[in-house]
């Protein structure tokens, strides 16, 4: 450490909705090339934390640095342009666009097309090839022409992740990517995530313990808006405090699904 700034750095982050404090002082550093999982019981504030980092809400106080530059309070598109992409826990796609179009739209800005209204999208060879490849990778090649709104739930989940992966951002944040997927779909998705995030930073929220421990280099445990531990998977597994605060409740949570 030392020379380069961390991929993502949170300092004293707070967020309140009205009088309810949801994020209550989060500090965290994630290095480039690190895969970081955030776990915690339902309602702990994981999604809210994602929303703060990706610009959906401004934080109440605190700093968010992306590759050393402060991004707190910037609109989402500025943050995306600086290299942070995310997926949503509640599927958030373009329902009337075709599956292929959804992915292609995800690639437009990162490939530098911006608001170009003088080029034909169908003639942009590299754009279409990359969309095509992504379509294969998320396993929706036979759904390419369908409007995204008519896909099944798990297909929409795959598309949701696909849109976030498009463009290969330096920092990728996935909010419960495998929720609602079957075992084999989950395995494929994890494999895909592992491949595309090689050398980049990944922040993932997951309830699936297998995914978390299989994928993450480090894990943070968020409970009631505070990070109570950040450590390697092995140490987290062994930690008494974590066992007590989270893993017990999580198992209840899993059982309830």
């Amino acid at each position: 450490m030392g020379m380069t700034a961390p991929a993502l750095e949170l300092v004293g982050l707070h967020k309140s909705f009205g009088r309810v404090a949801v994020i209550r002082g989060v500090d965290l550093q994630i290095e480039a090339g690190e895969r970081h999982a955030i776990i915690g019981p339902n309602g702990a504030g994981k999604s809210t934390l994602f929303h703060l980092i990706s610009g959906r809400f401004p934080p109440s106080s605190g700093a968010i640095r992306l590759k050393g530059r402060d991004i707190a309070g910037l609109p989402p598109y500025e943050i995306r342009r600086r290299g942070l992409a995310r997926s949503f826990q509640v599927t958030n796609i373009f329902p009337r666009l075709s599956v292929f179009e959804n992915l292609r739209c995800g690639l437009l800005w990162p490939m530098g097309y911006k608001y170009a209204f003088w080029r034909n999208v169908d003639r942009l060879v590299e754009l279409n090839e990359r969309s095509e490849r992504l379509l294969e990778e998320i396993g929706l090649a036979d759904r390419r022409h369908l409007p995204a709104g008519v896909l099944t739930y798990s297909e929409q989940r795959a598309l949701e992740i696909g849109i976030a992966l498009a463009g290969g951002a330096d920092v990728l944040m996935l909010d419960e990517p495998t929720a609602g997927m079957s075992r084999s779909e989950t395995d494929q998705t994890v494999e895909l995530i592992r491949r595309v995030t090689a050398g980049k930073a990944l922040v993932v929220v997951e309830h699936d313990v297998g995914v978390v421990f299989g994928l993450a280099d480090r894990i943070s445990v968020l409970v009631y808006g505070e990070i109570i531990a950040t450590d390697t998977p092995d140490n987290i597994r062994r930690s008494e405090a974590v066992q007590e605060a989270y893993l017990g409740t999580a198992r209840h949570g899993e059982g309830a699904r």
Binding site: Y77, R80, A85, R86, N92, I93, F94, G106, W109, I163
Partner: peptide, 10 residues
């Protein structure tokens, strides 16, 4: 279709 998501893709 979804102005919000459009902001998250840049």
């Amino acid at each position: 279709d979804n102005p919000e998501r459009a902001e998250f893709i840049g």
